[in-house]
Amino acid sequence: MEILVPALLTIITAATPLLFAALGELITEKSGVLNLGVEGMMVMGAIIGFVAVHYSGSAFIAVIASMLAGGVMAAIFALLVLRFHASQVPTGLALTIFGIGLSALIGQSMIGIAYEGIPHVSIPFLSSIPVLGALLFSHDLLVYFSLVMVFAVYYFLNKTRGGLILRAIGDSHDAAHAMGYSVIRVRLLATLFGGAMAGLGGAYLSLAYSPLWVEQMTAGRGWIALALVVFATWRTGRVLLGAYLFGGITILQLHAQALGIGVPAQVMSMLPYLATVLVLVLISRDLGKIKLNAPASLGKAFHASS
């Protein structure tokens, strides 16, 4: 038990950035927009969060700043895709290339600076967290916030009118448009939400998971988050499951190295990427399941007059 409990706690820390990013992308994709720029938005959230905490000393300001950074990145994507009818796949790739470059540029002066990590349980609104918090009291607030967001996203998608409109637009933008819903406005909001959550996921890496700045420190987590949405077949509960599964794989890799198992470090580091491929294969081969759950208009452009 002495090993198990800390291991479980670190799994949660490793899972949280994936969870934030994947929840955001879930909403974006449910509205019919495929934003492949999650990696770029995450890495921008990571650097802006780190810069903000360095200059303000406030983790709260850093978190807000990182969400804004992710949101601004998503806004660029939305402008190109929703206003200029740019193709979604290359635009998402451009967002990632741009984000990696810009974060490296901004982070030039942040290399080698240490930060003690965001405080555990000392931010004011902790008291409002339900009893669940008492069980796992050692975490920082963002972990709880990620779980609250799981519930909020589930509730929004399945129990509210807004969620229904969002899903309708994702499934058939022409029908939703004919019914008088503003396809572009809903997609813009969904994309911005996705960006803010990806930025927050990135900030979790640079503020909590390993509190320092390293170029490209997201190391493919944005892409893994995209794969998680497919793994989850666009269902909120399964996003949670998937994120914790991948958190587990990441931690397995770290602990195997610590225990001195005779497998080279590089092979262990391959695990999350190989697991992503494996999971994609297992889920995608069931074409019916994908067709049943994937938003039917995913990745398709919408033009009102056409």
Binding site: I76, L80, P90, T91, L93, A94, L95, I97, F98, G99, I100, G101, L102, A104, L105
Partner: peptide
Amino acid sequence: GVFQGLLLF
């Protein structure tokens, strides 16, 4: 990298 990203945008 920034310039390359901008060009594609």
